[in-house]
Amino acid sequence: MPPAKAVLTWLALAAALAIPLAVAATSPLLEWRGPVYIAAGLAGVVALALMLLQPLLAAGLLPGLPPRRGRRVHRWTGVALVLAVLLHVAGLWVTSPPDVIDALLFASPTPFTPWGVLAMWAVFAAALLAALRARLSPRTWRLGHTALIAIAVTGALVHALLIEGTMSTLSKAALCLLTAAATAKAIADLRAWRMLRRRA
């Protein structure tokens, strides 16, 4: 990749991640929220932003980070993603325990909640597969991780789009669109579904 194009790619990515975060971090709603609730909400935005980064790293789509190096970073951003999801749920639990208990029991009145809980379990399961990777067949690992992140991304995007929260409608829609496109591109490039035909 020519250096100018590489610089532009990184600048565009930095903007795609930083603008939604900056907008959420300056939302007027924050004035009426305590620090734990603010941190919980922002952890959710960070998790969404990391979900845009993950497929780009896994498929080696970022300049200077070809697949092998990209995946090393992918592992650490994966750990950060799990931590961000944990902070998001824990912070909401401290802010309003009954709402989070309803969420985890799939008994929430809000339509976006089950999507978020589904995405949470899919992220945890995808990370667990990554941790156990050495003990798994390539078929189980690749098909499992790909299927789980497809569920996680779908759940997280629907969850985010249905929420009336600190993210602005426009920057949230843009981040969700980019995340969906990056995930689809990475899945298409890595072609894990070939494993369906070949029995390991």
Binding site: S96, P98, D99, D102, A107, S108, P109, T110
Partner: peptide, 8 residues
């Protein structure tokens, strides 16, 4: 009663 109505 509505879902979540009694929360808090």
């Amino acid at each position: 009663s509505m879902r979540g109505g009694a929360n808090n």
